[in-house]
Amino acid sequence: MSDTITVLTIEDQDDIRRLIRMTLEFKGFQVIEAAEATTGLALARQHRPQLILLDVMMPGMDGLTASRALASDSTLRQIPVVMLSALGMADDEQAGLDTGARAYLIKPFDPWQLLALVDRLTQGAVTCHACR
């Protein structure tokens, strides 16, 4: 089931990107990565992943802008997006969800929670608000 699921991680911090890969591959997900949003959008169009993990604060195009770009693209808007951010205020979370993201995960996140979230979002359209 999860062997064929591809998750795209768009995250500028190498450490966090590597840890996300470790977590997802631990449960058999296939992972593709981008260190900045523009490359990430190109990878999304190329690979059509089942889920996108998107960091909010990145140099260049930030995660909120990238999420709006994904939502405005008719070929990508069905892909569930999970925002990752160290910004944990309610306003930050609401701003992320307002862009069309399905969930907002605050770093550092519980890897079990991430896996459960990825499992749910890749099996069906489940919106997870305030996953912490």
Partner: peptide, 12 residues
């Protein structure tokens, strides 16, 4: 933050 994240994953 990355260390905390690493700790969480190692705990997992």
């Amino acid at each position: 933050m990355a260390d905390t994240q690493l700790g969480a994953i190692l705990s997992m």
